[in-house]
Write a protein that binds this DNA or RNA. Sequence first.
DNA 1: CGTGCCGGGAG
DNA 2: CTCCCGGCACG
Length: 521
Amino acid sequence: MDSRYILEKPLTGPRVGAADFSCRSGRTVLHTAEKSGPVPYKHAMDGGAAAARSDKVSPKRNGVSPGVRILQDVEKNGLGDHRDTGYTGILKRASPTHCPGINRQLPCGFMHLDIRNPGKQADLVNSFRATQGLNAPLTEKQPLPSTHIPVPRNRNPSGHADKEVMAATVLTSLSTSPLVLYPSSAPTVPEPASRGWKEVLSASYSSSTSGNWSWDASDQSVPSTPSPPLSNDTNKNFLLSSQGDDVNEDVTESPHFMFEDPIPRKRKNSMKVMFKCLWKNCEKVLSTSSGIQRHVRTVHLGRNSDSDYSDGEEDFYYSEIEVNMDSLSEGLSSLTPTSPTTAAPPPVFPPPLADVPHSEHISVSASQSHAPTLLSQSAPSTLCHIRTDHAYQATAPVSIPVGPELAGLGNGNGTGPGTGPGPGNAISVSWQSPHVIFKGAPGPVTHVRTVSIGEKRQPASNTHATVNKNHALITPAAKSAPGTRKPRGEAKKCRKVYGMEKRDMWCTACRWKKACQRFTD
DNA sequence: CGTGCCGGGAG
DNA sequence: CTCCCGGCACG
C-alpha cells in the first residue's frame, strides 16, 4: 500500500552505497552486488515475484512461460550469459554500481521496479516520478520529445528529501519505468542512440560488454506490457530511453501484452501521473510531486513556502493518480487504415501544457481533448497489439474481428501488465486507474476503432468467384481451387517489422514462412 | 520486385 | 511434430 513510503524511507542520502542497498517496492527488490566477476551487479530474483508473475503470464505458448522463452531466445542468440537469472528466466537487475554513474548524470533520475502490480498506483506513480526525474534535468540541456510533463525547476534545488527519494528510486527502477521500457522496441533500436549510453556505462564501470546487462524482462511489463525478448536488446533500449532524448520516437508502441507473446517488446509510457491533494475539500491536482508537496506544505501544513525543507509529511496528503495520455502506435497500427503512426512524433502533451510549468495546474481533460484526433484514429491500434492467440480471426471474413479482443477476455480490471491483448483492452485498462478526476476524458479515447478493422479486411475478400460478371467465367481455372489464397494481410508482418536481421524475433509462423501469427489482420 | 504464405519435404 | 524452403500470388 504504501510502497512509496517504504521505498523512500530506507534511503538516507543521495549517495547510495553500492554494497548494501536494498529497496523494496511491492514485491520487487534490489539486491546487492556481491558477485565477483565480469558482472558487477547482481540479478535479483524474487521468488515470490517470479511466481506471481508467471501467473499473470499466460503460459499458453507451448506451455512455456514467456520468461522461459526469453531465456531460450537469449541462449539461442548466444547472449545467455545471465547465469544468475532465475529459473523463470526473469532477469532482474539492480546495479548499485551503475547508480553512481547515473546519478551523476541524472541527479534526480530514478526509476522504479515493479510497476506491474495491478492497482498499485503508488508504484506506478513512483515510476512516473522517476521518469520525471530523468527528464527534468535532461530537459534543460536538450529539447525533449513530447511525452513528458515539464518539471519545475525548483525541483532540483528542493534538496534533501527529494534527492534521497530519487536516488533511491533510480536504483530501483533502473529496469522498469514504463517510460523506459516503452522504447524497448528492441527491433527498432537505433544504434546511435544506444551508443551514447553504452559510453556512459562503460564510463561508470569498465566493461564494454553491454551484453551482460540484464533486466527483469518480465518485470518490465508494467501495467500493460511486454518485455523484450532479448535481454540484450532490452538493455540497450532501456539505456536508450533513460537517456531522455532519442526517445522521441515514441511512435513505436506495442502493447504487446506480456503474457501471450513470447516476444514482448516495445512499450511506451502512455501514462501520466498527476498528484492530487488529498486534503479535505482540496482537489488540487498538480503535475509534479514537488509541486504538490509544496502545495501541501504551504497551503495545508502552513509551512513556509520558501523553505525547501520537507520532512516528508506532505507525502501523506497527496496521492498520485494515473492518467493515460496516450498516443501513437507503431507499425502494428496498420490495423487501422488511417494509422497516423510512424512519422509523427507523439504529441502526447499539447504544447500549452508544456509551456506552463509555473502554473503546475494541469487539466488533463484539456490535454485529452487535444489528443483525441490523433487518438481516435490510432489509439486503438496503438494500444492494442493485434496479436492474440485468437489471431486466426483473420481467416474469418466476418465483420467484427474486434469482438473478442474488445470483449476483453482477461480484461482484468487493470490487472495491468499483461492484461489485454486487445485494443479495447489496453485502453480501458489504462484508464482505470484515474478513478477520481478526469472523467469524461476516457470516453472519446475508448471507442474509436471498430470500424477500421472491418474495412480493411473487405477489399480482398473472396467475393470474386461469386459475382464479377466482367471477366466472368474466364479464369476460374487459372486458380486451382476456390480455396484461393488469403487476401494477404495488410499488417506488417514480422519480417517487415523486424527485418531479416532479427529473424529470430519473428514469430515462428513467419520463420517457417507460414501465415504470421503475431500480426494478424 | 518484395513480401506473405501455401504446399510440400526432410529430419 | 518441427523446421525449412520452393514457388506462387499479391501489391
